[in-house]
Design a binder for these strands. Sequence first.
DNA 1: CATTAACTATACCGTTATGTATAATTTATA
DNA 2: TATAAATTATACATAACGGTATAGTTAATG
Lengths: 186, 186
Amino acid sequence: MSILREKILLVATDLFHTKGINSTGVDNIVAVAGTTKMTLYKYFRSKEILILEVLEKNHSDFQTWLDGKLSSSKKPAEKIQQLFDYIEEWVNSPAFIGVGFIKASAEFPNEKDPIHQLSSQQSREFRQFISKLAAEANIKDADGLALQLSLLFEGSVQAEQMKRGSGAVKYAKKAAKILINGAART
Amino acid sequence: MSILREKILLVATDLFHTKGINSTGVDNIVAVAGTTKMTLYKYFRSKEILILEVLEKNHSDFQTWLDGKLSSSKKPAEKIQQLFDYIEEWVNSPAFIGVGFIKASAEFPNEKDPIHQLSSQQSREFRQFISKLAAEANIKDADGLALQLSLLFEGSVQAEQMKRGSGAVKYAKKAAKILINGAART
DNA sequence: CATTAACTATACCGTTATGTATAATTTATA
DNA sequence: TATAAATTATACATAACGGTATAGTTAATG
């Protein structure tokens, strides 16, 4: 609702990705967002809450975007085939800055940490999303294929983080097609 | 050479992985290592230098271990096939705590940062190592296959970081075999 | 116009961070 | 034992961190 709240979320998202989460202070965020700490703490009780909300927004935004893209294909078998086409489009878009739950799990390695737990949950949700696509395409070991495709996905994002413009997704896409076709035959 | 120097490197490695790099202070390191800051700063000019040395030791230790394992196989075609067997052994060993350059690149996203640059370099070196294995096994697109296998590797480590004992490597191994066999036929 | 809500400005608290200065103390070695 | 090197102990400097308190200011709304 509030314009400032949105702005803070937006700026935090950007700074977290370009500078790292722990290396981004709230002073830094409010300065870039053009507001003050009082306003930030009015909308977010703590920095941890802010981080969690940023993660949630990122993840739901991506899922919404991906759902929209995939909804154009009617046949399930086409959907899973096109998954990496859209991932490639997304990763190679100028707006791409990384995947929140991958970075967050590295900065908050403790499995008891709420931030780590949310990251882990989002990673699992994405894998289940792929598994559902695979199951609808009548692939027998849907979970197994989904796990493999998620490895390619996370590996690609990791590679892109190491070196922007690495072109890793192109090869991930090729690998994905091979794995999907292999799984479909069983 | 110095016993304290080794101890500091060991403790820093452990804390960086279990708590994160930016969340681990030098006070914390020296307390666990049973020494003082003066000694730490005698051996390492700055925390950044310490991080870089930890990364270098991690990487060379892993490469040395992997080289040793692979040297038992004489035939090149066997080596690339066994790569993920050893990766699985390594990831599932109790001593496994993660891959330094993956975490470091997440905590230091700026491509100009020396820590990020070293991470990126180590990731590239590992990929080239796989590529050499593939080339020796007479695989045509050795670089392409190496990239794909490295995606599976980094994705697996990422998955294991999200949830310890995920069993992701088992499926990465299966995927690797499919991709290797597919590439070998070309 | 008056009231209320949203927002800014600024100073501050306590803690922790990296890194250094200084002096005392242990350990090794000639 | 005398000397030098390694290590400890401790205090400190400086800065940044997350978070709060207080007061002032703007903007919307009845």
